[in-house]
Design a protein around this nucleic acid. Sequence first.
DNA 1: GTAATATTAGTCATCATATGACTGTCAGTC
DNA 2: GACTGACAGTCATATGATGACTAATATTAC
Lengths: 208, 208
Amino acid sequence: MGTTERRQREKEQRRMEILSSAREIFFAKGLEGSTMDEIADKAELSKGTLYLYFKSKDELYVSLLSEGTEIFTNMMLESISQDMKAEDKLRSIGNAYYRFYDEYPQYFKILFLLQHGEFSDDKVDQDIQSNCMFEAGRSLNLIESILNEGVEQGEFTIKDSWQATLFVWAAANGVFTIAAEKHHEFMKEFNTKELLDFTMDKIISSLK
Amino acid sequence: MGTTERRQREKEQRRMEILSSAREIFFAKGLEGSTMDEIADKAELSKGTLYLYFKSKDELYVSLLSEGTEIFTNMMLESISQDMKAEDKLRSIGNAYYRFYDEYPQYFKILFLLQHGEFSDDKVDQDIQSNCMFEAGRSLNLIESILNEGVEQGEFTIKDSWQATLFVWAAANGVFTIAAEKHHEFMKEFNTKELLDFTMDKIISSLK
DNA sequence: GTAATATTAGTCATCATATGACTGTCAGTC
DNA sequence: GACTGACAGTCATATGATGACTAATATTAC
């Protein structure tokens, strides 16, 4: 009796369809600028149905953040291989970040540019919220473990690896945040990838 | 508000899924040998749902007949072009029939081999029933109009074009019915296409 | 031959999912 | 500070799906 599985599949599919419509709307108009009616319209569903699949507008949005973070983290993880030196791993995830910035500008924007206040627990399901956190955590853990590995192999000299992790993260993040604002009048031209490479050089030499 | 269209689409899709499952089962086991439970199973739907889309087992089956007849007739129609001589048109639809026999053996089987008694009006929706008839009629009409055209162009000499139509139809049908029984012990080997060509020659010369 | 059993087309009470008019809230306007 | 419009979220209703059940027929057992 495969009807149960089929229905499960169809449910998951519908969820995806809603997410997909929400993505288009949110990417185009941001959290505040988008309405549930609009999303329902795009999904060719009634608004009530959205609430059958997502607790709130916020939950829908956080689900997208979660998606983005997952893509991001996977790109980092897939960019490195076990036989690399710690230094090369760091450069590699820097490049992965660049590719994410380049290939998924919309996700980059909602994840790192738009500050997304707090999402209250009663509006966003715990599972979804924590998946988002978990995915974000994986990136930082990856960096920390690379730093620790670098210390073990004698490549780096670091006292507090968590502090160093945050430093690396902040520095890299800073590059892309600036890059995203390139178009501002007051900002002189620069090449993002070159700035990133330069920054990675500096970061790495400072860790040695 | 596109929800209505979307639901219409999904309904049509579900109908197709059911037909598709029914096709597999009916082709494999025939009308009697197949059960609604089996079809429901394959479609990953409950039996009740089948009856939401089709009035009866017979209606499901007739829908397949209808499908087959439509394919058949379209192949005939598409095989000829207006600038052909009547004789060539006849040969062309003969070849189209051969292709149908060859490419859709299952449809050929349920349409021409299995005798499908009568389907009572209260078991099969009028629309579906008559679509099937209509499609079948198109083939015969096509033949008749070719014959008439042949008479007008002086290619053929026929008194009763409807009688002649049935003759052509019966002769061609006969070839494929025999062909389908090739495998019988008592039957000597022969090449179906050659037999068809030979038959078409005879038919055509007899019409002149 | 017929009683017991099995099979299966078709039904229907119940459940699951989807709908959109409606409510409450809040920001902007007069 | 009353009025308006926009919008997140609700809920009574409608639509669609389910499968245990019934009745009719076929098959087996005696």
